[in-house]
Nucleic acid binder design. Structure first.
Lengths: 224, 224
DNA sequence: GTCTATAACGGGATAGAC
DNA sequence: GTCTATCCCGTTATAGAC
């Protein structure tokens, strides 16, 4: 075991950082087995580092996981930003429609792998972990990773919904987030239990229909 | 591996003191500290029973917690059923409005205590635990506790929304559930971090407005 | 500063005596 | 049915090597 770690260390001297290797291994294992099934013993064994290395570099298991979560969030939000760019370009100088904005928010979450039904199902589960046991430090560390998108969405939705107050727009956006969080939490169950691939197009249509109606609701709740 | 048919048998007989005492203690401790902070060692110490008693009577810690969760669900759903009774009586022979139905579904979840901001915040967290780590046996055990309500809601919403297909009504009801799950998961955070009591009336109005619009959405997502 | 070795701790589960 | 005695595991803390 000792010769293995030495070889790996010398072979990749430039980036043989224990810290980045740990993150890499953690990400891979989480993506494979899910955060709930990954112990730091698994990670350190696989990475060929000592058990205590995680505590030294990250402070705790949760903060290592938060690091991995941040990467996923960044990946998702980059795609969302790109879709917003396209939507804005397509709308010319005008404001993109509520539907276009929702699609940019929702669609990146529905991407599928061949083996994994939903690529980001494990990301949703990691998010849930933090929701279940809120940690102020981690939340603070995560905030920058989704704030830019949130600000932009708030601005764009407010422009698309001039008749809805900004406070309400923000609150309603929170409900869309809630729906998507729940959706992804069960994406793998729906897929694995039913033994069929998810119908992305259909799900997107349903989600956009429900959420756009909610975003546009009049305060008294009568939408028609 | 061990057969669990014995558990069903013991339920019929005069419930062993130990078993009911364990459930009672577990419920109380979960309501006080939250499920995440309660170990079976805490419970057995407090109940004055042996550590192994939980495994003997319930099979596992998770199944004991599921028992406590089932009680909360039953309490909530009894209130919901009563509100549906009233709504149906008020509507005479006609179908209660979407708003009245949503209110019956949502309002019971918003009840507050003096110390606890949301009486069922811990219930939501327990639900989340199971969502995070789905257990087929537990899900099967829980199903009867919310199926009657679900069936009734499906029937009533379908009657109130004749233009929406039953499959869509069910799917949309799932989104309302998602919103409420998320809402309760953060009820305590909103309350404790902001240091102010929740404004139940305002939250109810917002929730009903958003959800009723979503329930009524037209398939293409245009609601106005 | 970086990392290892090891110990201590607390948690859930279980076999087997009674 | 109940209880003791473990077992195994994941996590955390510390001391010290490099």
């Amino acid at each position: 075991m000792s010769d293995n770690t030495k070889a790996a260390a010398s072979a990749t001297a430039a980036e043989s950082d224990t810290k980045s290797r740990i993150i890499g291994v953690a990400e891979r294992m989480i993506a494979t087995k899910g955060a709930e099934q990954v112990s730091i013993r698994d990670i350190t064994r696989e990475a060929g580092v000592n058990l205590a290395a995680i505590n030294y570099h990250f402070g705790s298991k949760e903060r290592l996981f938060a690091e991995a979560l941040a990467r996923s969030i960044t990946a998702i939000n980059t795609t969302r930003m790109a879709m917003l760019d396209k939507a804005e370009a397509k709308a010319g100088g005008r404001s993109p429609s509520v539907e276009a904005l929702l699609e940019a928010f929702i669609l990146p979450l529905l991407h599928t792998d061949e083996n994994e039904c939903n690529r980001y199902a494990h990301t949703a589960k990691m998010l849930s972990r933090f929701f279940l046991n809120p940690d102020e430090e981690i939340m603070h560390m995560l905030r920058p990773h989704f704030m830019p998108l949130k600000e932009r969405l708030l601005r764009l939705f407010s422009a698309a919904l001039p008749e809805v107050g900004k406070t309400d727009v923000e609150w309603r956006l929170g409900q869309v987030f809630a729906i998507m969080h729940h959706h992804m939490l069960f994406a793998d169950l729906r897929c694995k239990d039913l033994g069929k691939k998810l119908n992305v197009k259909k799900e997107l249509r349903r989600l956009v229909a429900f959420c756009s109606a909610g975003m546009r609701a009049t305060p008294d709740g009568e939408a028609h």
